[in-house]
Design a protein around this nucleic acid. Structure first.
Length: 350
DNA sequence: CGGTTTTGACCCGCGC
DNA sequence: GCGCGGGTCAAAACCG
């Protein structure tokens, strides 16, 4: 595999592709990202996308190429100033805005190593149509990432982690309260804040802080019959704790099967075979979790199939039954979008 | 019974 | 110093 000159010229980006072995393994084996799991056939759309992705990755693209392809993929994308709009048009959540990311100029994702970058590419390439028209995103506080998502009515997904709500506050000038979540893993200091946009009611703003120091639950969990589309029964309202008016309004937003407004990024009808390819994979783990494992021990993951033991075993760090790590969706799992939540600074992969 | 959610209290930083 | 707003704590309630 050749690393193109342009990529090398990109400075830090070039280092992503130094380890060609890993890249080859990622691509030549049934790497989870590229091997649609489950019995459901790959929708043609995703298959084509995947092939494009693979093609791109087999020959490490330059930043310019990536950007060009992304832009070509969705020329109509609109992005706000200083942010990247990711529009998972395949699904119902049309807006995914990432801000405060370490994007800058031609140095696309400069804080990512090769494998992280590849995983990111695979993730968003398949799930979303990314437009990078807007450049020069400021790296503000790399320890925090803010994601805006459009509320998706018919689907909920989690980001592969189990969150415990530890607080909720009313925010000044906002009718909606802000909820505070911590990762339930005691080793993990990741947090997130979830609030609804005061301007756009259907927009959920999620701020991730810190990174997960553990694996998420399996990337491709076994799908129950019918694709696991049996939504959990909605919780009964608590008889106590009347809650504030704003709080009530906010809490009412999640639909049955969801616990948090942050589950917006659940890509469609949770469990519908539609969009199976990544719908079931993406939320299972954030890049930050996938990559360290891949880097450390790529073989098992690469050779594993969707429902195979490999994936599950690979996540032994976070067993399915463990409550300290998100392993399975449950009615108590706080959902959140699949997006960046690691900290390029605190995660020492640079 | 263990884990999660709720929610008031508390703490802290910031601006005045 | 004081008030305000935001973030966290922790006890109680809730839920499976």
């Amino acid at each position: 595999m050749e690393c193109r000159t342009a990529a090398h010229e990109a400075g830090a980006i070039a280092t992503w592709f130094d380890d060609e072995l890993i890249v080859r393994q990622l691509l030549d084996n049934d790497f989870a990202f590229y091997s649609p799991p489950g019995p459901n056939p790959i929708p043609a759309e995703e298959l084509a996308t995947t092939q494009i992705m693979q093609s791109t990755l087999r020959s490490p693209p330059t930043v310019q190429e990536i950007q060009a392809q992304w832009m070509n993929q969705q020329p109509e994308s609109v992005s706000d100033s200083g942010s990247v709009l990711v529009s998972p048009s395949r699904f119902e959540s049309p807006i995914l805005k990432i801000s405060n990311c370490a994007f800058s100029g031609d140095a696309l994702f400069p804080f990512l190593k090769k494998t992280e970058f590849l995983c990111f590419l695979a993730f968003f390439w398949v799930n979303c149509r990314v437009s990078l028209r807007e450049r020069g995103i400021n790296r503000i506080d790399s320890n925090k990432y803010t994601v805006k998502l459009k509320w998706c009515e018919n689907g909920m997904a989690d980001d592969g982690y189990k969150w415990r709500k530890y607080g909720q506050k009313s925010i000044k000038n906002s009718p909606y309260p802000r909820s505070y979540y911590k990762c339930t893993n005691p080793r993990c200091s990741a947090k997130k804040q979830v609030e609804r946009s005061r301007d756009e009611e259907d927009i959920i703003i999620i701020t991730y802080e810190g990174l997960h120091l553990h694996f998420a639950y399996p990337f491709f969990p076994a799908i129950p019959d019918g694709g696991g589309d049996n939504p959990p029964t909605p919780k009964r309202p608590r008889t106590t704790s009347p809650g504030t008016e704003s709080g009530e309004r906010f809490r009412e937003e999640p639909r049955p099967g969801t616990e948090s407004a942050s589950s917006v990024l659940t890509y469609g009808n949770g469990g519908d075979s539609d969009g199976l390819f990544f719908m079931n994979a993406a939320p299972q783990g954030l890049l930050e979790d996938l990559v360290p494992f891949v880097v450390r021990n790529p073989a098992p993951l690469l050779s594993s199939s969707y429902a195979g033991d490999g994936v599950s075993n690979n996540n032994s760090l976070c067993s399915n039954s463990s409550s300290s790590c998100s392993s399975h969706r449950s009615s108590s799992v706080t959902s959140s979008p699949s997006c960046f939540s690691w900290s390029p600074e605190s995660l020492s992969f640079l």
